[in-house]
Design a protein around this nucleic acid. Structure first.
Lengths: 215, 215
DNA sequence: TGTACATCAGTGAACGCGCGTTCACTGATGTAC
DNA sequence: TGTACATCAGTGAACGCGCGTTCACTGATGTAC
């Protein structure tokens, strides 16, 4: 049989070796980020949460930023997966799938605020963490692919650049997520769920392309 | 004659009393935020920058967060002023003024990154700092007013809620600003200035309302 | 199957650091008379 | 105009704290033979 980890039966560490410290540290980081934001997490506290001495994390991560970068990277991977599932290759139809994509963007921000913060709120120096930029690119690529499909249904003479469209949607989705889903002085009280706001925005945008049927 | 401050001739402090410490601390905070983000500023370092002992700031601010909140509040006030100027009451015409408003949003984020970060990136607890929420509201009100004017030019039967429209524009502008103007793993290389991206987005959006003349 | 050994993944003590905050204090300023 | 005094806005020393990081170490694990 193979359980989750080498020496763990599920209820935490066993003996001298933790068995799965790397994962435990990432979980701890997520917990701390969720509670206090990306700036409020420290290696020391993550170690404490994982039940391990403060020196132990250095066996797995060079420093705090590397741990944070790993969290962000995994976040992007999950995000990509989440968006891909929602897009479903453009099924049942392109417009519907596109709306689902928008909703998925927000639901990720809502349900995984720690990942989202690590990804978008941590001010990581991209170049110092290879793979991170690429992971972000992969997430964007889902949007880009969807935009390609949408744009292809527009008559050639009024077809906007798919890249531009993807950027617009990305910006609007991100704007809604950071303004209306997260705490802060700029947050408005919304008279509607953020999801509905975004969906309406996307629909209006698509209308301008002659899509999504005028009302 | 009245110069800038009680005992300052412009070249810094004079004697035992600083003369304008409150302002100097705010300037120092802006400088630090610009350099290291809202999380990377400390009262101690701000005091050092202002050439004053670490205890001095406590005569003017209860703690670091209060100072940050003051910075954010001033940022919102400047932002409001900046947007108001750009909107010009809807001159020369509503559409043009609306585009100017969008550009102004971005140019503020670009030219005042420290203020912008304090306003949108600092995760202040709004309720703990009275006036802050109101200042944010005033900034939004400029957009709201503009949306009202725009919407009024649309035939009544396809007139969208002005509030919704203001929220969409706010979200798109904020999304563009935080994704493409600031550093981070989610930042795309843009094949165009962010201002152009936003303007195109706003125009497309307005087109969906039958405004801004279809191309 | 047993044993020696290399390697791995932890410990825990220690270090220097900078921060937030307090305290009694003191120099400077302004004002009442 | 001068003086006593209250108030204000600083000082600087001190405190406790938690963090990042290092170091020599050691317990556990796996593997060659």
């Amino acid at each position: 049989m193979s359980w989750s980890g080498p020496s763990s039966g599920g209820s935490g560490r066993r003996g001298y070796h933790h068995g799965n410290l790397r994962e435990a540290l990432i979980d701890a980081a997520l917990e701390l980020i969720a509670a206090k934001g990306p700036a409020g997490f420290t290696i020391a506290e993550a170690a404490r949460l994982a039940g391990v001495s403060p020196a132990a994390p250095y066996r797995h991560f060079r420093d705090a930023e590397s741990l944070l970068a790993e969290v962000a990277l995994r976040g992007f991977d999950r995000f990509t997966e989440h968006l891909t599932k929602a897009w479903k290759g453009g099924q049942p139809d392109t417009i519907r799938a596109f709306e689902d994509l928008g909703r998925a963007y927000l639901s990720f921000a809502r349900r995984e605020p720690a990942y989202y913060a690590a990804m978008f709120d941590s001010h990581l120096a991209t170049e110092a963490h290879p793979g991170l930029q690429a992971a972000g690119d992969r997430a964007f690529a889902v949007l880009r692919e969807a935009a390609d499909k949408i744009v292809a249904t527009v008559p050639a003479d009024r077809r906007p650049p798919a890249l531009m469209m993807a950027l617009h949607i990305w910006a609007m989705a991100h704007g809604v997520a950071s303004l209306f889903v997260r705490e802060g002085p700029s947050r408005r009280k919304l008279p509607m769920p953020a999801e509905d706001l975004l969906e309406a925005g996307v629909l209006l945008y698509l209308q301008s392309l002659g899509l999504a049927g005028a009302d």
